[in-house]
Every structure is written in structure tokens, then in C-alpha cells.
């Protein structure tokens, strides 16, 4: 019931790049959008709908495509809202949310290094959890575990 105005406001702002609002348990819903509408959507969600707190950013490798999702929280509604966008499997990229929610900075660094999603205009896209110079993206389905000795040689050469 409360999520009606979410769908209406977002549809008014980003038009047909808004792909729908699915019900999702214990949240205001799961909002699907096209990745090119990322920045106007983030501004709408934060400034017009009042979701001021970015709780987390994550990514999923679905092999055929990749999904990036944002979990935002509103103190007024006392509700979470999920924002989700599908990205192509080849060279997935989306606009960074760090200019809207500063909390996105580290979350996007983590998502980038683990799931290989490029965040455009990110202020500081470096490795967060993995050592500098690590080339693989370990949470991709195509990632192969190395034997420890192989990995050691690789790390030493970096």
C-alpha cells in the first residue's frame, strides 16, 4: 500500500526505464530498473522518497547476465527498498552511487573486486579486501581455485 507512491514517483521520474516493483517480503518491494537510469533513480529515491540510508550494495553472477542491487532504508517509512538492475555479462558497468550515498564507496569497491562490475565515476575504485594487484574476481562462477603453491608464486610475482 505504501509502495504505490514509490512506483508512481519513480515512474514519473525515469519513465520506461522503470521496469516494475515486485513485492518482496518485509520491504517496500524490489524495484527493477534499467542501468542507464541509475543516477536519476538514486536521486529520486533519496530526495523524493526519503530513503536516506544506503544499507548495502551487492552483485550476483547469473552467468547469462549480472545483477547489481542496492538496499536502502527510510527512517520515515521504517522500511527497506531493494533496487536491482540487470547488467550484460560482457563488460558490466553502472553509474556509481557514491555521489548520492557516500556509503556506497566501499560497498562498490567490494562489489567491483569480487563480482567484476565496473562503477563509472567512482571516486576511488581500488581493491578493498583483496591485495593490490589481484587480477581475478573470486565470486564469479568462472573463477577457478588455484593450488596454494600456484597462488603463492602468482602473489610473489605481483
Amino acid at each position: 500500500m505504501q509502495s504505490d507512491d514509490v512506483a508512481r514517483t519513480v515512474a514519473a521520474q525515469i519513465g520506461e526505464r522503470f521496469l516494475g516493483l515486485e513485492p518482496f517480503p518485509r520491504t517496500a518491494g524490489r524495484l527493477r530498473f534499467r542501468s542507464e537510469a541509475a543516477l536519476p533513480l538514486f536521486h529520486t529515491v533519496k530526495e523524493q522518497l526519503g530513503f536516506h540510508h544506503l544499507s548495502m550494495v551487492g552483485g550476483i553472477d547469473w552467468v547469462t547476465h549480472r545483477e547489481v542491487f542496492y538496499v536502502v532504508w527510510s527512517d520515515d517509512r521504517r522500511q527497506y527498498l531493494l533496487l536491482s538492475a540487470d547488467l550484460p555479462a560482457a563488460a558490466p558497468h553502472i553509474e556509481s552511487a557514491a555521489s548520492v550515498w557516500p556509503a556506497a564507496n566501499w560497498h562498490e569497491r567490494e562489489t567491483w573486486e569480487l563480482v567484476d562490475i565496473q562503477f563509472d565515476h567512482h571516486p576511488d575504485l581500488r581493491h578493498l579486501l583483496l591485495p593490490d594487484g589481484y587480477e581475478a574476481h573470486p565470486l564469479l562462477r568462472s573463477f577457478q581455485l588455484h593450488e596454494p603453491e600456484e597462488l603463492e608464486v602468482k602473489q610473489r610475482s605481483v
Partner: peptide, 17 residues
């Protein structure tokens, strides 16, 4: 020797390395 995380992508397999 790395313990249960020996083959993990981010763990040193033993500090003697």
C-alpha cells in the same frame, strides 16, 4: 598451514611462506 582456508583465494597457506 592455512587451515580449512588453505585453498581459498585470499589466504596465505601458512605463515612460514
Amino acid at each position: 598451514g592455512g587451515g580449512p582456508f588453505r585453498t581459498a583465494y585470499s589466504v596465505v597457506p601458512g605463515v612460514d611462506k
